[in-house]
Each structure stands twice: as C-alpha cells, then as structure tokens.
Design a protein around this nucleic acid. Structure first.
Length: 401
RNA sequence: GCACAGGUGGUAGAGCGGUCAAUUACAACAGACUGUAAAUCUGUCGCCUCCGGGCUACGAAGGUUCGAAUCCUUCCCUGUGCACCA
C-alpha cells in the first residue's frame, strides 16, 4: 500500500465523508460512529468479472484505505458466487453469467491489484460462495419476502427496461438479495459502492434488519468517466487499469478530455481539496490544462508505480510526444536481411495485423525510419543494425539484424 | 402452447432482389493543427492484390433467381404480448 500524504485524522475524516461522495445513509449516524472510537466493519463487494481492476473500481478501494487509516476493519467480499449471477446495476441490458473457470482466472490477479490501494494484511477477505452456496430455497424465499415487485421496479434501470418492454430476468431481482445477505454474513457496519450500487446497498439494510442486525450505513461515490468520455467500464475498453504499465497509464491519463481533469483529481488522487479548488480556478482563468493533466498523470502513476516512475514517465512523455523524439526503451525485432521492401519490413516488425493496414499506414504517412517518412510501400530499406521503425505515433520498434 | 418482432461488421443501428464489403453514429487508426495520446479538422476503418480486380462475409442449412443481407422452406437462437399457472 502506498500511503497517502500526511493527513491528519480530521482531514481524512472530512474527505472521507464528502470527497467524491454521492450519498451517505445515514449520514449523522455514520459520522457519530466514526467519532465514537469504535472499530467499524466496512464492507466492499468486488465481483471478479474482469481480470483487471481500474481507476473507477479503485474509488471505493481508496475510501476503504481511508477507513483503514482511521483504524477500522475492512472486509472485502469477493463475489465469486454473485459474479456468476451478474448484477444489473451498471447495465442497460442484462449481464451474461460468467463461467466458474473464468471467475477463478480473474481472481488470481486480484490481490496484487488490491494491494496497491489497501493494506492487505489488515483486510478481511471473504468469498461469498461460502454462505450463498448453502442457502436453501426456504431462506431465499424469506429474503425475497422482504421486497415487493413494486419496490424492485422503482429501481431506475429496472423501471426503464420494464417500460421499454425489455427483458428483466428474475435472476436480476435476486442480486440485491444476495448482496444484502453478504452484509448479514459479515455483519457489516458500513458498505461502500459506486453510485450505481445505491439500490443494492439499501437492500442490505433491509435484509440486515430482517435478521435482527443493526442496519449498515452506506456510502456511494461518483462514477468515473473513461478515456473516451463514457463511463469507465471493462466492457467498453476505456479503462485505465491498475496494472497498466506506468507509461501506458500516464498516456491514458493524458488522453482524457480536459473537462475530466478535476473529477479525476478528486476521485483518483490524494491531492488535497484546497489544492484542487485552486486548480479549478486556474483553469477558469486560462491556465493551460495540459500542465494540470501532466500533474494528474504523475499523481496517478505515483500511486500505482511510485515516485521515480512518475517522474520518469512524465519526462518520457514530453520527449516522445512533445519533442517528437524516440522513446528511450523500445522493443527490438530482428530481421535477417540486409534490405527489405518497406511494407515487408513493417509487417516483419509485427506492429500490424494485416498487410492492408500496413499499406494504409504507409500511404497515410505514418511509417518512419529513423524519423524519415517512408511514403512508398515498395521503397527498399537498407537494414542497418539499430535503425528505428516508427509505425504511427505510438509504435516504435528497433530493428536489429 | 399461440401470436408478433427480431438475429447485420468492435458496439449501437440502417439496408429489405442488382448501383452492398454494406448508410450513419460511437469506438479504433493515420495525418494536419495544437497545449498532449485534449479539442477541432481531414482521411482510413473485412482479407489479399501485379491496384484491373479477386476472395470471404449480413444466425445455420437448403431453395428460387442471370443475380440474395434482402424472396421461399426448414432449423437454431433472442425478445415482447397473450394463454397456461390445481
């Protein structure tokens, strides 16, 4: 875990309850609990539905870290059972059920990723198959009794689909029940989630009450937009993954729209709110957003790769994209020839998947050898050891014999 | 079970006998410009090509036709409505 800047408890506390927060229920109760000195059990459910966690998913994780720093116990529910069922929260249409093998596959990589944000050694991990596998129909029926169809249909994405005559599977109604039952199983005091989780989190309160437990408080957070401006989601392919290589991570941050900069600062970095507000007014008064975005990129890379990498990567980015120089560390490909036709060389470099694509790239002026544009598909290239082939803006390959 | 609607390229979603490798939007890629891999603008966006064209594609299999993503048959799948619900 990369610890946050030195913040006082009071600072953590005020950030915790407001920064990037959409809802807190019950706010007064939670606040007094937090000040009571009691150790709270703070739950976050993670469904292993894709191999990579991303910055959006890291938002509640970062909140968990805050709770940890305040001395509370965090409980990560790995939704190995629920992942098979599929949540409807973030989908307009229903989600496919995942195969068990796929889930296990995804799970393998999770702990490393989680460890970048939270302190694993102090976290409690539970798999919800532990209790959900055992639930019988009797009990499920009892859970279901806690909700009416009308209540379910009040949920926005169910209602919309209902009105549009689209399918809503009964299975999807079950999901909040399961998630709620998780809260009972681990006796959660607080549950966190994205804004889209509000309904599910509330269901947890109802179910806990049914089991005679104290109702959990809940917090939801703003959703993060991805690199293309749509909500960050693995299925859109617009994610910045916690595992992304430092260069890639920085580059992706630089490719977000300017309008998202502040939101990213709030949701994905430890930069203080005062400072963020200052930046906001700087932007308004005409500061070049690029500079702030660079700062943002560094802050984010810092969190997941450390300070040295953050500095390095920012310099590298300037070198390659501002000054148009050649990256310092590039892939090498060896070709066993003295001279090659441009297209053949391009294909041999492995940078592209089809020859048509290669032709296009050359015709569009995207192929360079040692910085010199090659504009004819057929032009012969002398292969000297170490020449640098550039295929478009991003791909650099060193050619060796 | 009955009726209806539908299955098209990474996604959404047009096309409804030839002019369809398939409108458009988003995503992606390239170029210009810039402040960056922002924004904007331009171009590209199935595979191969000796740039003439060739090949494979519109759920599957057959069929009609000189010619089908488009019509017919069967099958598979999806959704909605209705019926059934002791």
């Amino acid at each position: 875990m990369r610890s946050s800047k030195n913040r006082s408890k009071e600072e953590i506390l005020s950030d915790l309850l407001t920064r990037g927060v959409e809802d807190v229920i019950d706010k007064e109760h939670l606040e007094s609990e937090l000040r009571s000195g009691k150790v709270l059990r703070v739950k976050l459910g993670i469904d292993p539905t894709s191999p990579n966690l991303h910055l959006g998913r890291a938002i509640p994780l970062r909140k968990l870290r805050d709770f940890q720093e305040l001395g509370h116990k965090i409980v990560i529910i790995v939704g190995d059972f629920t992942a098979q069922v599929g949540d409807a929260s973030d989908k307009l249409a229903k989600r496919p059920m995942l195969k068990r093998e796929a889930i296990n596959e995804y799970l393998k990589t999770y702990k490393d990723q989680l460890g970048k944000v939270i302190d694993l050694s102090e976290a409690e991990f539970r798999y919800n198959s532990e209790w959900l596998d055992k639930l019988g129909f009797q009990e499920i029926a009892e859970l279901a009794e806690q909700f009416s169809v009308q209540q379910m249909l009040e949920r926005r994405n169910f209602r919309d689909r209902f009105e549009a005559h689209e399918e809503i599977s009964l299975r999807e109604f079950m999901y909040p029940l399961m998630q709620g039952y998780d809260s009972v199983a681990v006796e959660a005091d607080v549950e966190l989630g994205g804004f889209d989780q509000l309904f599910n989190l509330k269901a947890g309160r109802v179910i806990q009450k049914h089991y005679g437990q104290k109702e959990q408080d809940l917090m939801t957070f703003s959703m993060l937009d991805g690199t293309d401006g749509r909500k960050m989601s693995s299925s859109w392919g617009n994610i910045i993954a916690l595992n992304d290589a430092a260069d890639d991570m920085f580059g992706k941050v630089m490719s977000i729209r300017d309008e998202l900069i502040i939101k990213y600062f709030i949701l994905c970095t430890d930069v203080s709110m005062q400072e963020i507000e200052k930046m906001e007014s700087e932007i308004a008064s005409g500061t070049n957003p690029r500079d702030l975005k660079v700062r943002l990129g560094k802050e984010i890379v810092f969190l997941y790769h450390g300070e040295a990498e953050a500095e390095r990567v920012a310099l590298e980015f300037d070198r390659v994209f501002r000054d148009k120089e050649i990256p310092s560390d590039i892939e090498e490909v060896s070709v066993g020839m003295d001279t090659m036709i441009a297209l053949e060389l391009l294909m041999a470099s492995g940078a592209l998947s089809s020859r048509g694509e290669g032709r296009r790239l050359i015709e569009q002026g995207g192929m360079k050898i040692d910085g010199v544009k090659i504009d004819d598909v057929d032009s012969p290239i002398d292969i000297r050891n170490g020449i640098v082939l550039q295929a478009g803006k991003h791909k650099f390959i060193k050619i060796v014999k």
